[in-house]
């Protein structure tokens, strides 16, 4: 078992990065890896509620984030600074997560075995 950290740094729907990151996260968790997710930079826009990706021909993978607890992915972090930049620091978000400082993210990256950025 390895500690895999998956970083979402890009906004959803413009590119398939977020969707393919989530595919990998769920698959890794089902293969008994210790998976954690971190939302940083524009990637925090994955956390906005009431998205309708089908209107722009994209798959609604945002709904699939709801499956994370079923896969025992309990560590979901979002960068406080990024949330603040995008005006989401006080917003209700799509999933239960922990807001952390950049320094805490630095520490988390140091503790992981491998980090995959999308």
């Amino acid at each position: 078992m390895k500690k895999l950290t998956i970083i979402f740094r890009r906004a959803p729907h413009g590119t398939p990065h977020g969707r393919e990151a989530l595919d990998l996260a769920l698959l890794s968790a089902s293969f008994e890896q210790e998976v954690s997710l971190i939302f940083v930079d524009e990637g925090v826009l994955n956390l906005v509620k009431m998205q309708h990706p089908e209107l722009v021909g994209a798959k609604d993978f945002i709904a699939t984030f709801g499956a994370l607890p079923l896969y025992d992915v309990d560590t979901v972090l979002a960068c406080k600074t990024s949330l603040l930049e995008y005006g989401l620091d006080k917003a209700e978000l799509t999933m239960k997560l922990t807001q952390v400082s950049p320094a805490e993210i630095t520490q988390h990256l140091a503790d992981a075995d491998e980090v995959l950025v999308f």
């Binding site: 078992m1 390895k2 595919d23 890896q33």
Partner: peptide
């Protein structure tokens, strides 16, 4: 599949 990537990483 992605499983090959994950077991490979492991």
């Amino acid at each position: 599949g992605l499983g090959e990537l994950v077991t490979g990483i492991e």
